[in-house]
Design a protein around this nucleic acid. Structure first.
Lengths: 170, 170
DNA sequence: GGGGCCATGTAATCGGTTACATGATTGA
DNA sequence: TCAATCATGTAACCGATTACATGGCCCC
């Protein structure tokens, strides 16, 4: 149940509407915790009923600006300090590797080369993103840079691994 | 919907009962695509009704030994050759990093050190596993080694990243 | 006036988890 | 005989995805 904590985390920085939050999920958080629009509005409703967030202001077109409550902040800190992330294991890409013996070697190699290509593309995109962001010295930049560095190392590792693996088939 | 393809992949190697398959999910596949017992039996029922697998033999205690059908093999190959894995993004561990500004620096550092510790432990466990497996020259060993190498590189990368990140906070 | 964006919600479905429920066989 | 293991299934619930549905506001 991390979606609620992602919402609390974003609202802890500044108040926002569902629409605002959606955009942030589609951009900065898209690479860590994607969420759909319907899921988001449903969760905002639940959080409001539970008193972790509240409607702070109303705007045009039925816009509701949410803000985090004291209980919401407490829950966010509790999550960060007292709980530990679940191991995330599922990898469809890797599951396929287990069964590559079912297809001819050249098709298996094509698959691994495809993986190398997508990982390489992701790495390039992150390097470009890094250059485009106006980094400064606040916490958001500090931890945002850490997350970006993780993404870079991860895509680099997958690219190198897939290159290595496809070479094993030659 | 990869569980069905995981089952097809395992049954393509050799016939097995639900109980047999469960053990293989709990050991070799646990790190790539975990599945629960109930999910597994439900999916075996569906696959049988759809004609992708069939009960080949019955044993004591109501044991049903399943085997893959020609249609099942075709579906497995179609999945491997014609479809591409979905990008897998969700990372609760990384989501937390985005919000570490909400807690004091020393608690944030403790979190990153915790991540380094678990990743390091995983790396060690995989190295040990690698030494314990009697590798030979068949496809299963070839692709199994690839998957293991991925796991090693992945945990290594996470350990090094978390070490680097925690050092950023000093 | 109208296109694009802002803005909110509901319903159906699906894959996955947890809990429940039962019983046969084997070997010490 | 009795514990461990083999063996199968169902039900309730939850989070996530897809599709549906509606309408107001702003600027050109």
């Amino acid at each position: 149940m991390s979606l609620r904590h992602a919402l609390l985390g974003l609202l802890a920085e500044r108040p926002a509407s569902g629409y605002d939050l959606m955009k942030r999920f589609d951009t900065s958080l898209a690479n860590v915790w994607p969420a759909t629009q319907s899921q988001l509005y449903t969760e905002l409703g639940k959080l409001t009923r539970e008193g972790l967030i509240a409607v702070a202001a109303k705007g045009p077109r039925g816009r509701k600006e949410y803000d985090i409550t004291a209980e919401g902040r407490a829950e966010l800190r509790r999550w960060l300090v007292e709980t530990r992330p679940h191991r995330e294991v599922r990898s469809e890409a890797l599951l396929r590797v287990f069964f590559l013996g079912q297809i001819p070697g050249d098709e298996a190699r094509a698959y691994l080369e495809y993986l190398a290509g997508t990982a390489g593309g992701q790495y390039d995109a992150l390097v470009e993103l890094e250059g485009a962001i106006p980094w400064d010295d606040d916490d958001l930049s500090l931890y945002g840079r850490m997350a970006l560095e993780y993404g870079k190392r991860f895509s680099e590792m997958r690219r190198d691994w897939a290159d290595w693996a496809s070479r094993q088939l030659r």
